[in-house]
Design a protein around this nucleic acid. Structure first.
Lengths: 225, 225
DNA sequence: TAGATTGTTAATCGATTAACAATC
DNA sequence: TAGATTGTTAATCGATTAACAATC
């Protein structure tokens, strides 16, 4: 799945994972995002440094692997002390290229949409919800969590004028494919799907389907087994 | 992380993954849960059979790996045809030991709690939400999605009398640790955390922290890179 | 039959981990 | 200094995949 270069890097000496050199593997990218989540919470709790052992206990990733993942990009830690929380946050953001702001459009102003709009979980990670779209004319012009609700018809104009890179679907399953089609048509390439609907999209579009029940099945297996 | 037996199975002949023989690896369990999600949706859409290639395109898991994952437990497919959707659903449920009903207690009746209570995403996978707990006395006795709201004080009695195996936290971050402590004390061993709070629990308790923004960071990397 | 798709092998590649010297 | 923790090596283990015979 990961496209590898045909010319291998020298076996020794050169950084294996220097920024810009190669695309991160799926596993590394997922783990870095996970570390970031913990670091941001740790910072909120007033922690200034954190050891790979601490990170391991929160993320359930082996501490050696954490050090290995990080050391591929630089020497971020201090021996005998650990990692500075603030600087590690910004280093990982650089690696994941999510230092900047990214604009999100949210679809659906039901309970789930409202929960997302009023949470700061996206804001904490540099995502800005720039608009909520809903089919109900009653909601048009209202604000939810400080964000204006617009009619679905404004989708195309809004996406291009506001540089929306991600569409988040919190609509009923039977409306999801239609919104997805319009987002793809409008040029959005990353869709976050909170509905159960399996979305049919062209290969260049990334769909992430959120599946709490699936995660739960999986967690429960290790409890029952 | 996975505990391996010291006595290895014979190299050839015997089923490598027979039911009850060994615990599934983390990866296999996660993928099986993923296949199940797609199969259940496919069934809703009226599909009767599905090929490993179809499953691959929905799950982004290599089709060879899907066949390999499944064939470790039996010969579920028909060459030239594919897998029967219905029977594959029940086979995977058997493997994941989630054929039965499992009782869930939901905490928090805000927007997120209501979204969860009124969705059928948990019900589709054999989870039954038996109660919603909320601090607000105004909500006590009301019903949301057909489920009764109870005061937090009823937690301990309810969890033991109703055999609750999973606690789902849709409460504000500053209330999450307290609810988690009480759940652990009451004997619940699987906690699903929708708050941002990092939960401190004993090692025998499994916490799954849902992190939409983290998943998004990760999806976005592959778009930006 | 001809086409499709499974089940399985064999080879490769990457992830994981224990261990420890370096050093804060 | 003594204790702690990083960065890195070297070895192992498991995941992944291409390929294809079996067979529906």
């Amino acid at each position: 799945m990961s496209a590898r270069r045909s010319t291998d890097l020298p076996a020794a000496g050169a950084a294996r994972n220097g920024l810009g050199s190669e695309r991160l593997s799926l596993g590394v990218a997922a783990r870095l995002a996970r570390y970031l989540q913990v670091l941001i919470q740790a910072r909120k709790m007033g922690r200034e440094t954190i050891s790979s052992q601490d990170l391991a206990s929160w993320t359930h990733v082996n501490s050696t692997q954490i050090r290995r993942d990080l050391s591929g990009f630089g020497k971020f830690g201090k021996r005998g002390v650990g990692y500075n929380v603030d600087s590690l946050v910004s280093e990982i953001r650089k690696i994941l290229r999510t230092s900047g702001q990214h604009n999100i459009a949210l679809f659906g102003a039901g309970h789930l949409g409202r929960a997302i709009a009023t949470s700061d979980i996206f804001a904490d990670h540099g995502f800005r919800i720039v608009s909520i779209f809903d089919v109900s004319p009653k909601l048009t012009g209202k604000k939810i969590g400080g964000i204006e609700v617009r009619p679905l018809d404004d989708l195309e104009d809004f996406v291009s004028s506001e540089e929306v890179v991600v569409g988040v679907l919190a609509v009923p399953a039977d409306a999801a494919q239609d919104v997805a089609d319009r987002l793809v048509e409008a040029g959005v390439r990353v869709i976050f799907n909170y509905s159960e609907q399996l979305l049919d999209v062209p290969p260049e579009v990334t769909v992430h389907t959120s599946s709490p029940a699936v995660d739960l099945l999986y967690a429960l297996y290790f409890y029952l087994a």
